[in-house]
Write a protein that binds this DNA or RNA. Sequence first.
RNA 1: GAGCCGGUAGCUCAGGCGGUAGAGCAUCUGCCUUUUAAGCAGAGGGUCCCGGGUUCGAGUCCCGGCCGGCUCACCA
Length: 501
Amino acid sequence: MPLGHELLAQRIQRLREIQALGFQPYGRRYDFTHTIPEIVSRYGDKDAEELNPRVTVRVCGRIHTIRHMGKAGFAHLHQGGERLQIYVRQDSVPETHFRLWRGLDAGDIIGAEGYLFRTRTGELTVHVERLEHLAKTLLNMPEKWHGLEDVETRYRQRYLDLIANLQVRQVFLTRSRVIASFRRQLEARGFLEVETPMMQPLYGGATARPFVTHHNALDMDLYLRIAPELYLKRLVVGGLDRVYEINRNFRNEGISAQHNPEFTMLEFYQAYTDYRGLMDFSEELLRQVAVDATGSTEVEYQGQKLDFGRLRRLSLREAVLEYWEDGERPTPEQLTDPEWLKWRSTRATPGEALQDLFERVAEKHLIQPTIVYDYPVETSPLAKNKPDEPQFVERFEIYAAGMEIANAYTELNDPLEQLRRFQAQLRLREKGDEEAHQMDEDFLRALCYGMPPTAGEGIGIDRLVMVLTNCRSIRDVILFPLLRPEGPIGLAERLRALDGC
RNA sequence: GAGCCGGUAGCUCAGGCGGUAGAGCAUCUGCCUUUUAAGCAGAGGGUCCCGGGUUCGAGUCCCGGCCGGCUCACCA
């Protein structure tokens, strides 16, 4: 009989023993007096005298380690990312409670009532007088020393990863603080949080291939959104001058350490400002997010110090010139010369070639948080032209750790120019570019009613969290990253065999 | 999609040139009333990812597949 089965049989047997002792293997509510983090912060620095007269507490948590020693024993309970030791001795608890204690396993969730004391080695510990059983583990916990290291298991069974690896909990707490910080800051500046369609009859707002789904009752195909942009701008037309949305985008493209098919984006739009205004705003936002998430504007990423205290700013063309490596550095004029660009990229238009050049030459060097501004019009179908250089648009991206983490621009609000841009996209589409924009005539109609001058920005939450938590892979900041199915697990069958259900 | 690396006990990992599969933790039994990677004595536990092939013999060599990681490509 394989161990997995034998162990499961033992644990199932133990359920009956717990019941026979008058406890419930899966208990009901437990009215604790303190969480374990509360105990630690309140009594963690109290010495033995300060714990007299006795402080009685009721605590609960999951057993992580358990040390049985004949007629007594110790265990560490975990709750809320903190741990607390409990001490159970035969002559301090009712007999059935001690028998319950003898049958407890690492992984079980229990409640313990007793008084606080310091052990010989000085560790704050609950001297238990009553136990309660709250949940039985039927499966073995990962090893106490190494924890759960298998990357695949960590992603597939994130619950186990969270139990075994406390740092993982920290990453997701930080992620939550990042999002809360954005909400707080946007709220404070009068931004309204909205929700726009995730299922869209036309997709747009970014260059990407969509997921397609189908609505049965309406018998129509729908696209999972690749961006909320066109809906958010409709709202600005409608007079919601400051709106934002934090939600998932879906892009049917490759998976990598920086790409998950669904990812979380903050998009916000502010009327009556432009991309220069958003540069200043972004700087403030990111500085405060870094502080709220990590306590400092400086964070360490893969051995390098990144400073969100101030964002460096340089134009896309300056970035290409600065990081040029191969052969003779081009002149600024050459970077806008279609003939020169044609020979330096396989892309069809001068603007695409220039951006291609930027991505190849400069992107990987942009380690410190940096604003890169003024992008070619060909790659930015929704952004407003620069008045003095119409082949460029008022657009910037923010880079950190060599990754693009934000994209912003002065929004194109001229419907006639928008129509021309859509037509240019349609021509690309006809040439087989699946990522080119579709014509969205309702969006065009909205612009025809007049959209105030507006600037908008999207910030990739996952990537920003990677940088702030020193994670190398986007899968480490997404609780359940997309994986191929693992195949049959076989647990249901084993449980059925053991329980006869 | 391509290249490289990996998959061995519940977990973390060893297994030299092909010869009946190992450790620590966990589990079970006994001892142990302030331990903390508790300790001591004993025991059980394996579809070596799956399927073919070579061989007297395959965890090991070859081919195909599955799953994952990394690096590219694409992308944010």
